[in-house]
């Protein structure tokens, strides 16, 4: 919960009981986090849009299966992760683990900066954002996925491990390597 309103768990519970109005605030609250997680993983806006739709359809359809033993965010990102993996495993010919690294222009363009900023400042922000996008792109998929899950989902190492089906130690290593590599790559930019 980030907007001081009802908790995610309360909203999903209301939605399961048939209160349609409970879904929109839930969607709005997590829309950008899920979007960034998907878009920065696949590096393609159209594919990210497709996956975004699939993820939220699954949330709406399977809402009754959510159990408040886990945080809603963990469940949400688990669904997003599973959809992403399905897409990457070749259900869609145009997205694959191999192809992700070859979409440089799209990845760089995915950061659309605030047009209201001063021109030079806007350029700087865009450059910095592009540097991050390119750095993310150069990470191995598992490291990028773990990193994005953690920063976008605000998840613990245990939660990331649970979602990715990896051990705690493996996940911890991936996160450490991801940050180390990003630091290195962004250091070149800085």
């Amino acid at each position: 919960m980030t907007d001081g309103g009802e908790s995610d768990e309360a909203l999903i519970s209301r939605y399961v009981r048939g209160d349609a109005a409970a879904f929109a605030p839930l969607y709005r609250r997590h829309e950008m986090r899920i979007w960034r997680y998907l878009q920065r993983n696949v590096g393609n806006r159209a594919t990210a849009d497709e996956l975004m739709q699939e993820v939220w359809f699954a949330i709406a359809r399977d809402a009754a299966r959510y159990r408040p033993t886990a945080r809603f965010t963990t469940w949400l990102f688990a669904i997003a992760h599973n959809r992403l993996i399905d897409a990457l495993r070749g259900r869609r010919a145009h997205v694959s683990l191999e192809s992700i690294g070859h979409e440089a222009p799209l990845v760089a363009d995915q950061f659309t900066t605030d047009s209201g900023a001063e021109p030079l400042a806007a350029v700087l922000v865009r450059d910095q954002a592009a540097a991050l996008a390119q750095a993310l792109r150069r990470l191995p998929h598992e490291q990028r996925d773990a990193f994005l899950l953690q920063v976008e989902g605000d998840l613990t190492v245990e939660e990331v491990a649970s979602i990715t089906g990896s051990s705690f130690e493996t996940t911890k290593s991936r996160l450490r390597y991801a940050r180390s590599r990003l630091r290195e790559l962004l250091g070149e930019y800085a």
């Binding site: 209160d19 979007w35 739709q53 709406a60 995915q110 900066t113 047009s115």
Partner: peptide
């Protein structure tokens, strides 16, 4: 500073679908 968003069509379709299910 990232202003990119999912398409408005996606948002509309998702919310309509959720409403129907509810």
């Amino acid at each position: 500073s990232d202003r990119s968003r999912p398409s408005a069509a996606v948002r509309q379709v998702v919310l309509e679908h959720a409403e129907k299910l509810a």
